[in-house]
């Protein structure tokens, strides 16, 4: 029972972060057909801004707020400086641009700040646990779950009720329709990057608070996980991104919890094998659209 409670807590905690990350990728993919691999570096940037805010003596909540906003603004600037000039180029060009931006930011972090990780001092109250029945849940996990779920609920309302939410959902279905609705493509794309950056910022804060440090390469693993999540859910599907986040986290946590020790080194290989099996049943992802091309 104790192990089941721990399992559920860990799945929700990790799944929420994965969902936020994958949503960030999905939003941009919806409007531009691009998987932005520099999304992870937005997380890293958020971590450094959070660290700077804390070191400058700002209250923790204010440092978090500034860091998340920095993530959003940086994403919009990234779109303006790197992706707008190649917007009409092929998908491969956009993809290469995202890799280039990712590597450029990594090198800037390494040479401009430090190749070493930097410890991020989080408030002491976040480093303790509370008892839930026979289990103990760390406050970082509670914060992670709370922030993740609040953000997902907010996004649900945003996509269902707001003008820009509808526009992004419409773009996910058919980008040309958005133009017919009278929405300027440039504005929508900039807005999508802004939203994506804010999501990267929230996920980045959760990641850094949980891990306790930020380093130049921090964004690589999360963005890889987010990409897998987005593919499982169905590229471009916002619902799928959330769903995929919890699927991947439930697989990863289950394997880590119950896999025999002698098989543990194969954990990641088993995870990806399961992902491939899922994709063999749902080739376009669980919520993905079936694409048919005329011959």
């Amino acid at each position: 029972m104790e192990s089941l409670i721990s399992y559920v807590v860990n799945v929700i905690s990790l799944g929420g972060t994965y969902a936020l990350l994958a949503l960030g990728l999905a939003v941009v993919f919806s409007v531009l057909g691009l998987i932005n691999f520099a999304h992870g570096e937005l997380m890293t940037l958020t971590g450094y801004v959070l660290l700077a805010g804390i070191l400058m003596g700002q209250p923790f909540w204010l440092a978090v707020l500034i860091a998340v906003i920095a993530g959003g603004v940086s994403a919009a600037l990234m779109e303006f400086a790197a992706f707008r000039p190649v917007r009409n180029a092929s998908g491969a060009t956009l993809l290469m641009t995202s890799f280039a931006v990712s590597m450029l930011l990594q090198v800037i972090f390494q040479n401009g700040i430090s190749p070493r990780g930097q410890a991020v001092p989080v408030p002491a109250w976040l480093t303790t646990s509370i008892s839930v029945g026979v289990s103990q849940i760390s406050k970082v996990q509670i914060m992670s779950i709370t922030v993740g779920l609040v953000a997902l609920i907010f996004l649900k309302f945003f996509f269902d009720r707001s003008y820009w939410g509808w526009a992004i959902k419409a773009a996910a279905n058919d980008f040309e329709i958005v133009g017919l609705m009278g929405i300027k493509a440039s504005r929508l794309i900039t807005f999508a990057f802004l939203l994506s950056g804010l999501l990267a910022g929230i996920a980045g804060v959760l990641w850094v608070v949980q891990r306790g440090s930020v380093d130049p390469l921090m964004g690589f693993k999360p963005v890889l996980a987010a990409f897998i999540v987005a593919v499982i859910g169905g590229l471009g599907s916002l619902t799928g991104a959330v769903f995929g986040g919890f699927i991947l986290s439930s697989i990863e946590i289950a394997l880590q919890t119950w896999l025999p020790a002698n098989v543990m080194p194969y954990r990641e290989a088993i995870t990806y094998t399961i992902v491939v099996l899922i994709l063999s049943v749902f080739p376009n992802g669980i919520f993905g659209k079936r694409v048919q091309e005329k011959v």
Partner: peptide, 20 residues
């Protein structure tokens, strides 16, 4: 004897195993 993946998101599961 526990094992982790470098750069993994969380060590909660491993810590639960140690606590057990």
């Amino acid at each position: 004897e526990g094992q982790f993946s470098m750069g993994q998101a969380s060590f909660s599961v491993i810590v639960d195993q140690i606590k057990a």
